[in-house]
């Protein structure tokens, strides 16, 4: 069977597209470079929106990228069940595109945060987290200026009640995110947004752990098993 093909979108200002592609490869899939200005997902089986500062994030994080040409195809495919993982800036883009609820605001402490962060996996049933167990603790890097997840009280209640909080921060909340939320999913579980960076924790040489690899192996296993 051919390897699963996982697209990684590069926007002007993306930083972590190469690391994301590397993580995809280490997880056993073929990374496919996708370009923001193309109306073409190249038939990929899943998509990663990487971290960085798409289009400079000059208005709000993710606000311009939401209108990138390739987002037209991505939004339609995500609504049809395509697995999509937005990491950091990718999470911000998914919220701006209304594939995920809420928004990411400047860190409550106003400083850029860069640290190895403990997390707890709250939902191990999404397309991107089946390789973990519920309650499993991970250490993966977080690095952002706009990581404070915010949503109205009703949305927060819905996310919690429907099991759509994918991961929460442990030990300390690095950005003032409501409910210590580090990641959420859509109702179907195919779209996940995550503020920390699993693609930076896939090899012991360069990361604090290899705890991040599970996000990528989860989706690959699902695709190969499909």
């Amino acid at each position: 069977m051919d390897a699963a093909r996982v697209g990684v979108i590069t926007f002007p200002g993306s930083l972590d597209d190469r690391d994301a592609a590397r993580a995809v490869r280490l997880a056993g899939a073929e990374p496919v470079a996708l370009w923001h200005a193309d109306h073409d997902l190249q038939g990929v089986d899943a998509v990663v929106l990487p971290g960085g500062f798409s289009y400079g994030d000059y208005l709000r994080a993710g606000a311009i990228a939401r209108f990138a040409p390739i987002l037209t195809e991505l939004v339609a495919a995500a609504k049809d069940g395509l697995p999509v993982l937005g990491i950091c800036n990718g999470f911000q883009v998914l919220c701006e595109a209304h594939l995920l609820p809420g928004a990411l605001l400047p860190n409550a402490g106003l400083h850029f945060v860069c640290r190895d962060q403990r997390l707890r996996v709250e939902n191990a049933d999404t397309a991107w987290t089946t390789g973990y167990t519920e309650g499993q603790e991970l250490v993966i890097p977080i690095k952002n200026a706009d990581g404070r997840f915010t949503a109205d009280a009703r949305t927060l209640d819905e996310l919690a009640a429907e099991g759509r909080i994918v991961a929460r921060y442990l030990d300390l909340n690095p950005n003032g995110s409501l409910g210590d939320i580090a990641g959420i999913s859509n109702a179907a579980g195919n779209v996940v947004g995550l503020m920390p960076h699993p693609e930076h924790a896939v090899e012991s040489l360069t990361g604090p752990s290899t705890d991040g690899l599970g996000f990528f192996t989860s989706v690959v296993k699902r695709l190969v098993g499909a």
Partner: peptide
């Protein structure tokens, strides 16, 4: 403007 219920750390600073 940010909605009134949303924390504004810049304004606070």
């Amino acid at each position: 403007m940010l909605k009134p219920e949303i924390l504004d750390p810049q304004g606070q600073a």
